[in-house]
Design a protein around this nucleic acid. Structure first.
Lengths: 116, 116
DNA sequence: GATACTGATAACAATAAAGTAACCAGGAAA
DNA sequence: TTTCCTGGTTACTTTATTGTTATCAGTATC
């Protein structure tokens, strides 16, 4: 996404979408939650995201101060991700979104189960 | 976006993103707000969205019961969009997101003004 | 010595989303 | 008669996003 188009715009919603308005970012934030999570764990939990895209998105979230990245000098390497205070503040809002969805859409898991 | 990949998944955030997780939908919902708005007005307010994409997104929002579409048999045609109760419930949550953004990002409007 | 481990990265291919331009209805006004 | 009005639609092109595969480091285990 060309984030520049957004930044200039003076609609607050538009500016917000420039930061977290992508297919994966809210899911990544939600997946990390309040814990410290290794890259591989995020990847496994999300299931259907490629390593490359996950890396890219995590980098952008880090740039925007939403995610913290800690590298341990071990072998094999270990990298832990966690939410910054800014990211943590997003959690309750995302939870409201899922509650909104559950209320109106019901629980559709199991229906139309069609994983690639 | 291939919404089927999402629907099957049993992560609540993932299912939510299948409904409103696109570049434009939250902005459209925010733009309609509590009013009845004509197509042309939404288009003008948003500025940088094409008619085709706006039409497509409004159709999907209608399918998902978030937006209501009223057609008046006049010439030139008049079509008014408004949020359903389900859509209205989304408004305060979207407002929280913009407040989160304003708090952390500050008011960047005017900075790096780079409209296409 | 071959292989596995993790968290990447690079080059490339595929797909999805978004944008562009032309066109339509059909009555009213110039 | 031509032009404008609105809310689209259609066919097509462009751009953005996502995915695939191969590769790397450097130690430990088989």
């Amino acid at each position: 996404m060309d984030r520049d188009i957004f930044i200039c715009h003076n609609c607050p919603m538009t500016r917000t979408m420039a930061t977290i308005g992508t297919k994966w970012k809210p899911i990544i934030i939600y997946t990390i939650g309040k814990k410290k999570v290794r890259f591989g764990v995020i990847h496994a939990k999300m299931g259907i995201i490629s390593k490359k895209v996950l890396t890219d998105q995590l980098r952008e979230l880090e740039e925007d101060g939403i995610v913290k990245r800690e590298v341990f000098k071990e072998l094999p390497p270990r990298v832990e991700y966690s939410l910054t205070p800014k990211g943590l503040e997003l959690l309750p809002i995302l939870n409201m979104l899922t509650r909104w969805n559950q209320k109106h859409h019901g629980n559709t898991s199991g229906k139309g189960l069609r994983v690639r």
